[in-house]
């Protein structure tokens, strides 16, 4: 079943058009790998999907429903809700330097749990009228407090489980500056997983790392197979191995797309052939 459909993304910065009508579809649980020379618009595409940029034109359908439309201006509240359904792992990790690994992972969940408890309290209080509200106040406060505690405990348990999943259980108390680049990126992946996004995006997750550290990060991503993911990468061997579908971008358009075998095994366009040849010579671009 078609799970994600991106239609006609266009984005201009000043006068330059960076995305010139980009669209693709993705099945649930598939991994889409995006390759292409630097400057071809890959980052911009992921940023548009995560509402860090607003495309000038384009629509996204998720699970058969219209999910976002560039023509609609969403409120901050709506944007927040939409952002939760996508996840993004950045090229340079962007961990929160003032928190240890565990808090980096649990923070967003914890804040949501607090908000939910507050909303519940408001809702319960609103249901009571007049003097009954005063009488119920203590009971409802206690209920909300219990809900908050439970939510926070859950976030912590989840953070522990996720850190274990990325192999960093014993680093849970370490601050970002105490971790290697590879470890930081693994924490960032755990953090992105904490909210269980429906589509998880990676923007060149290993290109800020020393070559000997890329392996551990790629291994973690490999272990996520089964999730719907979009991975921008220059690691061609990895791309070839994990991709269900591949998109080759050049100058803001999708120059070629297909299965891993089609794109890497039998490239059609000259640009893709040249690109693959270059990456073979240099290992990466």
């Amino acid at each position: 079943m078609e799970y994600l459909r991106v239609e006609g993304f266009r984005k201009k910065f000043h006068q330059t058009e960076v995305l010139k009508g980009v669209g693709f579809t993705l099945q649930k649980g598939e991994i889409l790998v995006i390759i292409g020379a630097s400057g071809s618009g890959k980052t911009t595409l992921l940023r548009c999907l995560n509402f860090l940029e607003t495309p000038d034109e384009g629509k996204v359908y998720l699970n058969g429903e219209l999910f976002s439309d560039a023509a609609v201006r969403y409120s901050d509240r709506e944007l927040r809700k939409k952002r939760l359904r996508f996840g993004l792992v950045f090229q340079n990790f962007n961990l929160f330097p003032n928190y240890d690994a565990k808090r980096n992972v649990s923070l967003a969940c914890e804040l949501l749990a607090r908000e939910r408890a507050r909303a519940k309290k408001r809702e319960l209080l609103a249901a009571e009228k007049g003097i009954a509200r005063l009488k119920a106040y203590r009971r409802i406060s206690a209920e909300a407090a219990a809900m908050k505690r439970e939510g926070i405990a859950e976030s912590h348990a989840r953070a522990d489980a996720l850190l274990a999943q990325v192999g960093l259980q014993e680093k849970r108390d370490a601050f970002p500056y105490e971790l290697s680049g590879g470890q930081q990126q693994r924490v960032a992946i755990a953090r992105a997983l904490a909210l269980d996004p429906e589509v998880l995006c990676f923007d060149e997750p290993t290109s800020a790392l020393d070559p000997e550290l890329t392996g551990e990060v790629l291994k973690v991503i490999r272990g996520l197979k089964g999730r719907t993911m979009i991975v921008v990468t220059h690691e061609m061997a990895f791309a070839r191995e994990v991709a269900d579908r591949v998109i080759f971008m050049a100058d803001g358009v999708i120059e070629e797309d297909g299965t891993s075998e089609e794109v890497f095994g039998a490239p059609k366009s000259e640009k893709l052939k040249a690109f693959l040849k270059r990456t073979e010579e240099h290992g990466w671009i």
């Binding site: 995560n50 509402f51 860090l52 901050d76 927040r80 809700k81 952002r83 939760l84 996508f86 996840g87 993004l88 950045f90 340079n92 962007n94 961990l95 929160f96 330097p97 003032n98 923070l107 967003a108 804040l111 949501l112 960032a188 953090r191 992105a192 904490a194 909210l195």
Partner: peptide, 27 residues
């Protein structure tokens, strides 16, 4: 403060206010 942290917070569904008080302020 690097903008990336702010964006990381947004992607995680945090509000601007939460990002400011939880992440930016102490730094």
């Amino acid at each position: 403060i690097p903008r990336g942290q702010y964006e990381a917070g947004l992607v995680l569904g945090m509000t601007k206010v939460q990002i400011f008080f939880r992440i930016t302020l102490l730094q």
